[in-house]
Simulated scan of single mutants.
Amino acid sequence: MHAKSGRTVRDLRRENRTAVLRRLYFDGPMSRLMLGPATGLSSGSISNVVAELVAEGLVEEAGSVDSAGGRPRTLLRIAPGSGCMIGVDIGETRVRIELFDLALTELARTERPLATSGPRTGRYEVGVVVAHLRDGIAEVLRTAEVPAERLLGVGIGVPGIVEHTDTDGAVVHGQTIGWDAVPLERLLREAVDLPPEV
């Protein structure tokens, strides 16, 4: 007797979509024929997933390549404008916030200086950094005229070790900057109006 895996049709559908999107993002553009072996999915599954992703505007055609007989194969790629990502670098002298489309084209950038005089730990005061993040994220979205709903994620580089907790999300332990168990994700979510799935 086999135990049930607990996976639903919805889980399988999500995994198939993720596999196709991942391959197109990292290895694209690719044809439907190339996606099969790259993802391990059947040609029928590829056709269904691709049709769904094209209809949602997440995937688009990107030209064609000749085939070894028959008509040319259509190449597919991630639609660059279908979503955006924000990258943040909390550096030694500044906080840099950049907005990118899915082709990693920079759409907007801003920097907020960190105090360079006074005690080193004063430079990384948590409230100041969170305020820089709040204002910088709002600025890059406004500059690029991108609604927050198109935002897929925010990645933050911090000088320290990041621990994920169930209650606070990403918690930063940064000895060199004087942060001990700073609940950065929770503080950022409280300060910035981000969609819950970001």
Rank of each mutant, 00 (worst) to 15 (best):
residue 88 V to M: 12
residue 41 L to Q: 11
residue 100 F to H: 09
residue 72 P to R: 07
residue 144 A to R: 10
residue 125 E to P: 00
residue 80 P to G: 10
residue 80 P to S: 06
residue 138 A to M: 12
residue 125 E to M: 00
residue 94 R to M: 10
residue 131 A to E: 09
residue 103 A to T: 00
residue 109 R to E: 06
residue 79 A to Y: 11
residue 70 G to S: 12
residue 62 A to R: 01
residue 60 E to M: 13
residue 164 H to E: 11
residue 110 T to I: 07
residue 157 G to W: 03
residue 112 R to P: 02
residue 123 R to F: 03
residue 164 H to G: 01
residue 54 V to G: 09
residue 61 E to T: 11
residue 66 D to S: 14
residue 43 S to Y: 15
residue 91 G to H: 03
residue 76 L to G: 04
residue 136 G to Q: 12
residue 68 A to G: 14
residue 73 R to V: 04
residue 59 V to T: 06
residue 76 L to E: 02
residue 79 A to V: 06
residue 61 E to V: 03
residue 130 V to M: 13
residue 116 T to K: 04
residue 73 R to Q: 15
residue 94 R to D: 07
residue 160 G to D: 06
residue 154 V to C: 07
residue 76 L to Y: 08
residue 122 G to L: 06
residue 78 I to W: 14
residue 52 E to L: 12
residue 152 L to I: 09
residue 48 N to H: 14
residue 65 V to L: 12
residue 42 S to T: 14
residue 151 L to K: 04
residue 148 A to E: 15
residue 155 G to L: 04
residue 81 G to I: 00
residue 114 L to V: 00
residue 109 R to P: 04
residue 79 A to Q: 15
residue 50 V to D: 05
residue 97 I to T: 05
residue 99 L to R: 08
residue 53 L to F: 12
residue 145 E to P: 02
residue 74 T to V: 07
residue 127 G to T: 10
residue 166 D to V: 09
residue 77 R to F: 08
residue 60 E to R: 14
residue 110 T to A: 05
residue 158 V to E: 11
residue 137 I to S: 01
residue 98 E to P: 01
residue 45 S to R: 15
residue 123 R to D: 01
residue 76 L to A: 08
residue 45 S to A: 15
residue 88 V to G: 09
residue 158 V to C: 08
residue 57 G to K: 06
residue 77 R to S: 14
residue 126 V to R: 02
residue 88 V to T: 04
residue 75 L to K: 04
residue 131 A to M: 10
residue 55 A to H: 15
residue 54 V to W: 11
residue 122 G to V: 00
residue 96 R to S: 13
residue 77 R to Y: 07
residue 115 A to E: 07
residue 51 A to G: 15
residue 68 A to C: 09
residue 107 L to D: 10
residue 68 A to V: 15
residue 142 R to V: 05
residue 85 M to W: 06
residue 148 A to W: 08
residue 51 A to R: 15
residue 126 V to E: 03
residue 136 G to P: 12
residue 47 S to Q: 09
residue 131 A to L: 06
residue 81 G to F: 03
residue 157 G to R: 07
residue 130 V to R: 01
residue 125 E to T: 05
residue 66 D to V: 01
residue 162 V to I: 13
residue 139 E to G: 00
residue 129 V to R: 10
residue 84 C to S: 03
residue 99 L to M: 05
residue 120 R to T: 03
residue 112 R to K: 09
residue 92 E to V: 01
residue 155 G to M: 02
residue 159 P to I: 07
residue 93 T to G: 01
residue 133 L to W: 04
residue 120 R to L: 08
residue 150 R to M: 08
residue 125 E to K: 05
residue 158 V to K: 01
residue 56 E to V: 07
residue 123 R to I: 04
residue 127 G to P: 02
residue 69 G to T: 11
residue 58 L to P: 01
residue 115 A to F: 00
residue 63 G to C: 01
residue 41 L to T: 02
residue 74 T to K: 15
residue 88 V to F: 06
residue 92 E to T: 11
residue 83 G to E: 13
residue 82 S to Q: 12
residue 159 P to S: 03
residue 143 T to R: 15
residue 110 T to M: 08
residue 55 A to D: 15
residue 132 H to F: 12
residue 94 R to W: 02
residue 138 A to L: 14
residue 102 L to C: 10
residue 106 E to L: 07
residue 93 T to W: 00
